[in-house]
Computed example of a mutant assay.
Amino acid sequence: MVSRRVLLAAAGLLSAGSLASRLARAAGPAAAPVRAFPLSIAVAEGDEGKPVRDEAWVDAQIAEAARLFEPAGVALRKAASRALSPRFSRIETRADRDALASALEARRINVMIVASLRDVDDPRRFRMGVHWRHRATPERRFVIVAAHAPPTVLAHELGHFFGLGHSGTDDNVMSYSRTGAPVSFDAAQIEAIRSAARRHAASKAFDPA
């Protein structure tokens, strides 16, 4: 004869299993990895003919971006690294930003590393990074990162590249506000990145990294 305690335990296990099953269905299928996206890195040369940032600094920016994008199933890989003319070292105006389009590599996400990046809306200020569309041909777009940018700036600008806007939440990748806590994307942003990445992959706009 089965005791009441055993019956209650079995019922509890069935109930827990049913709850876990419902939660799994609500969460949906696990994120399928999306093809890696190739980054073409162009580093401006400074006044002395030396790059404004070295490969270690660039690799640290890419590593942090790759870590933050990983939950969305998006991989980022450095596909090319090249020098950018000294005339692009200091980006002061909208025309300067547009001129960078002449250095774009096709079928890659282009990242331009420059010595300084002035805010074109408030010339008294300098920016750490920007996602820029060439004004005459907006389909030509790229990321600009200033040499003084901290490690999460590339991830922030790539967030814009994948369609995200700014966030008002402290320590969100897309926020300007930092408290010292770990930085991350929220669940909705991760889903938006995943959707945009799948569209880009389906369009074959980028070479496999």
Rank of each mutant, 00 (worst) to 15 (best):
V2D: 08
V2C: 06
S3F: 03
R4C: 08
L7R: 11
L8V: 15
A9H: 13
A9N: 09
A10K: 09
G12K: 14
L13E: 02
L14D: 08
L14C: 04
S15D: 13
S15K: 15
G17C: 06
S18H: 15
S21R: 15
R22K: 14
A24M: 12
A26I: 14
A27P: 11
G28I: 05
A30S: 13
A30F: 00
A30Q: 09
A31P: 07
A31W: 03
P33L: 04
R35H: 06
F37S: 09
I41Q: 01
A42Y: 12
V43N: 13
E45R: 15
G49R: 02
K50A: 13
P51G: 05
P51A: 10
V52S: 07
V52E: 01
W57L: 09
W57T: 12
D59V: 14
A60S: 11
Q61M: 07
A63R: 13
A63K: 06
A66C: 05
L68W: 05
L68V: 08
F69N: 02
E70K: 00
E70R: 09
P71F: 09
A72P: 02
G73P: 06
A75P: 14
K78C: 12
S81I: 08
A83N: 07
R87M: 03
F88K: 00
F88E: 05
R90G: 04
I91Y: 04
R94K: 06
R94W: 10
R97D: 03
D98M: 01
A99P: 02
L100F: 11
A101V: 14
S102Q: 14
S102C: 10
A103D: 11
A103P: 03
E105Q: 04
E105H: 11
A106G: 01
A106Q: 14
R107S: 13
I109K: 03
N110S: 05
L117R: 01
R118H: 05
D119N: 12
F126M: 07
F126Q: 14
F126K: 05
G129W: 05
V130F: 06
V130K: 01
H131G: 11
H131W: 13
R133D: 05
H134G: 07
H134V: 05
R135N: 02
T137M: 09
T137F: 04
P138C: 00
R141C: 12
F142W: 01
V145F: 00
V145D: 00
V145H: 02
A146K: 08
A147S: 14
A147P: 02
V153A: 11
L154A: 01
L158C: 12
F161L: 00
G165M: 00
T169W: 08
T169E: 10
D171A: 14
R178A: 02
T179P: 04
G180C: 02
P182H: 03
S184M: 05
S184H: 12
F185Q: 00
F185N: 10
A188D: 15
I190K: 10
I190V: 13
E191W: 03
E191A: 15
E191R: 14
I193P: 02
I193E: 01
R194F: 02
S195C: 05
A197Q: 03
A197N: 01
R198E: 15
H200G: 06
H200I: 13
A202I: 10
A202M: 09
K204E: 13
F206V: 11
P208M: 05
A209L: 14
A209K: 04
A209P: 08
